[in-house]
């Protein structure tokens, strides 16, 4: 009846062009399954998954979105209050990589992230299992793009071969932790009466009240 340990809830949104494997990535992560012929996502999909990092358990509320343009108005309402945004492309699809910029902007626009806050983006290049000759985006390109856009976390994954999928989500959480602790610090500097023990419970147990720094 009663949850003995209180997990930190994190809202994760997966964005990227249609067909880069967002849903596969999520399904691999959540249920360790892979369906080569999965359908297009209709609007959004939602799954929960617990992940343990450094002894702490985090509950990821993963919103998988539809990449097709016609779903734009259907997915954008879900950006608000996200803690982590996973920008996804396929390494065998240059266009999807080029569109990352568009996705980044779309997210920033609809998630209502305040100017001075860093958006917790991580970049994931999916389908790393494709043969080298079919590859259109190299890891170097990815890193360069991330550097140019001030994104520090990026990783190549394969939902098909399950490589790096857990790592990618772990990385996302760690990235969030990093940003969070930085935010905490800056907050402590400004306001030294902040009750740190209270902080965790008050802002991180809700599924939808915005990010923690909205105080």
């Amino acid at each position: 009846m009663r949850s003995t340990t209180k997990n930190t809830l994190l809202k994760v949104v997966i964005l990227g062009d249609g067909g880069v494997g967002k849903s596969c990535l999520m399904n691999r992560f959540v249920s360790n399954q892979f369906d080569e012929h999965s359908f297009h996502t209709i609007g959004v999909e939602f799954l929960n998954k617990d992940i343990e990092i450094d002894g702490e358990t985090y509950t990821l509320q993963i919103w998988d979105t539809a990449g097709q343009e016609r779903f734009k108005t259907l997915r954008t309402p879900f950006y608000r209050g996200s803690d982590i945004c996973i920008l996804t492309y396929a390494v065998d699809d240059k266009t999807s990589f080029k569109n990352l910029d568009m996705w980044r902007k779309e997210f920033a626009n609809y998630a209502d992230v305040k100017e001075n806050n860093q958006v917790p983006f991580i970049v994931v290049g999916n389908k790393s299992d494709v043969p080298t000759e079919e590859r259109e985006v190299s890891p170097l390109e990815m890193e360069t793009w991330c550097n140019d856009n001030g994104i520090t976390s990026c990783i190549e994954t394969s939902a098909k071969s399950a490589s790096n999928v857990q790592e990618a989500f772990k990385m996302a959480v760690q990235h969030w932790l990093k940003l969070e602790s930085r935010a905490d610090k800056s907050e402590t500097v400004i306001n030294d009466t902040v009750d740190l023990s209270k902080k965790q419970t008050e802002n991180r147990t809700s599924c939808c009240i915005g990010s923690s720094d909205d105080k």
Partner: peptide
């Protein structure tokens, strides 16, 4: 219909937000 489905998801999520807000 597709819109309906996602909007319902959004509304439920929002109502949850309201619940938590109410609790606070």
């Amino acid at each position: 219909v597709e819109g309906c489905y996602t909007f319902i998801a959004k509304i439920i999520d929002d109502i949850c937000r309201c619940c938590v807000f109410y609790a606070d």
